[in-house]
Amino acid sequence: MTPFALWVYLSTSPLLWLTGTLIAWLAASRIAVACGRHPLVNPVMLAIAFVAVALKLAHIDYKTYFDGAQFVHFLLGPATVALAVPLWRNRDLVGRSLLPMLAALTVGSLVAVGSTIAIAALFGAPFDVIASLAPKSVTAPVAMAVSERTGGLPSLTAAVVVATGIFGAMIVTPLMNRLGIKDWAARGFAVGLASHGIGTARAFAVHPVAGAFSGLAMALSAVVTPILVPIVLGILK
């Protein structure tokens, strides 16, 4: 086999891009740890950038990449189920926090959806863009379904959801420190509500209690947001 034929084989095989995804993540998390888990050095953003640059340089389309990376992507489902474990470990604290959580869920979801719609409308964005933005704080599969149902563009929603997740994960630590909030449950709940799974990944890296509450907030907002978005969008019409 010539080196070129070997490359043609490898670059289109799932093995190469699955391996590449894992190595990009390992490199990104090493860098994040080496930077003392500085909030601005977000490993998800770094790993995405590494892979995106590699694909660009190798002229590989996303479909070929995803044939390999889908095995990692598939684990999102089991990982969501696994959130039950930190939830169970913190059940006493969760039980004592039911009222604060319900209140924060209601207010936080309303502010997340309402402020997004208000700002986009203020800037004169067309309705399909507003509808694409509205569910941006909720986990991607739910957000895309909501966007589609309310007249948005699901692919734009997916891009906005990832951007929201990464931005929330980067800003949460400095923001909460500036507000002087030391309650890990409250901090975690806020980042899970505002920035879904990518925020939850940050929360688990910071503190297990923050991770547990972040996962719970993400699950609860996946329940509330599909109900909330059509109502708030209806006011606009």
């Binding site: 926090s97 604060p100 959580m101 209140a103 924060a104 869920l105 209601t106 207010v107 936080g108 502010v111 997340a112 402020s115 997004t116 700002i119 986009a120 800037f123 004169g124 964005a125 863009v129 933005l133 941006k136 704080s137 906005v160 951007a163 929201t164 931005f167 929330g168 800003i171 949460v172 923001l175 909460m176 507000l179 909030i181 309650d183 449950a185 409250a186 901090r187 709940f189 806020a190 980042v191 509500l193 505002a194 920035s195 907030a217």
Partner: peptide
């Protein structure tokens, strides 16, 4: 519009949620 909506609304949502919780 999109950039500002993401940045401002994410900060507002974080603050509103954490303050309500506390």
């Amino acid at each position: 519009a999109i950039g500002i909506a993401i940045v401002v609304s994410t900060v507002l949502a974080l603050v509103a949620t954490v303050v309500t919780f506390r």
